[in-house]
């Protein structure tokens, strides 16, 4: 069996007394599109943030291509406060900051778009090429890196062409319409040359037409850049359309997973979305 691209092992994230993610285990394989869905406040984005290094989980491990990138166990105050269901905690502590995780090849977008507001479309993407620089402060200041700089700019132009924003390259990022801002965020993530792309609600706030073209777009870039995609989404149409597998969480806990049609008919999932009849 080939190793998974990304594997979450017993991830628990607790804020004070609130358990946002409880004992979540899942995996994503090469070339898949995997979706994590769940009702509002189910802990999807928190799980995402544990993978990308924004939060350190209270307990559990994340592996990327078999390599441990995050690992933690309850310590200090959390030892007594811990309320998650997982009982045996990993022994190792591995903490990575988001920038290091991005360097490993995981790039993400944000639920509430976070573009660099004062920069143009072109500059927004150009900034994301910074992590591949070979120049240092001195060579960059004295422009001894001009060849690399030129390559970066060409790469960015290519990317903008792929996402269809080449004409808007000199516009201010925030002056773009909403749908294009989403695309720009994806282009920016692609500029870090990821192997695994993490999309946090890419269709949020989009109309049906935009959502359709987004689905196509995700499939396109997945093939073109040989990506594996992990996304969080509310839009069922989109999720059912493009996902190979789906994980469903509710109140931080995994309640179902499988192929789209399997999940669709799962009674637990229906209950979670529509509410359980008390009688």
């Amino acid at each position: 069996m080939a190793e998974h691209v990304l594997e979450l092992k017993h991830i628990t994230m607790q804020f004070g007394g609130v358990v946002a993610v409880d004992d979540l285990s899942m995996h994503i394989d090469q070339g898949e599109i995997v979706a994590l869905i769940g009702p509002n406040g189910a802990g999807k984005t928190t799980a995402f943030n544990c993978v990308t290094g924004v939060y350190t989980p209270t307990s559990g491990q994340v592996l990327y291509h078999g390599r441990l990138i995050v690992s933690n166990r309850p310590e200090g105050r959390m030892k007594t406060l811990y309320a998650g269901s997982q009982k045996d905690h990993p022994a190792e502590v591995v903490v990575n900051t988001p920038d290091r995780i991005t360097k490993l090849g995981l790039a993400r977008t944000f639920q509430n778009i976070r573009l660099f507001k004062t920069q143009t479309v072109f500059e927004n993407v150009l900034i994301a090429t910074h992590l591949h620089r070979t120049s240092n402060l001195l060579t960059a200041t004295l422009r001894l890196n001009w060849r690399e700089e030129r390559e970066m700019r060409e790469e960015v132009l290519n990317l903008l062409e792929v996402v269809g924003l080449k004409d808007a390259r000199d516009e201010l990022a925030t002056s773009l319409p909403y749908g294009k801002q989403r695309r720009l965020e994806i282009a920016r993530a692609l500029a870090t040359r990821p192997k695994l792309l993490l999309l946090d609600e890419p269709a949020a706030g989009m109309n049906p037409q935009e959502t359709d073209s987004l689905a196509l777009f995700i499939k396109q870039i997945k093939d073109r850049f040989a990506l594996t995609v992990f996304l969080i989404e509310h839009h069922m149409d989109l999720v059912m359309d493009i996902s190979d597998r789906i994980y469903v969480i509710d109140f931080g806990r995994l309640i179902a997973h499988g192929a789209p049609h399997e999940v669709q008919d799962d009674p637990d999932v229906i209950n979670a979305y529509l509410g359980v009849d008390e009688e």
Partner: peptide
């Protein structure tokens, strides 16, 4: 490229960090 990263940090720290800075 360093100056661009500085400006990215100013505009949005979290996004800048997510871009590998």
């Amino acid at each position: 490229t360093y100056g661009r990263s500085f400006k990215a940090i100013r505009d949005d720290e979290i996004a800048a960090e997510a871009m590998g800075i």
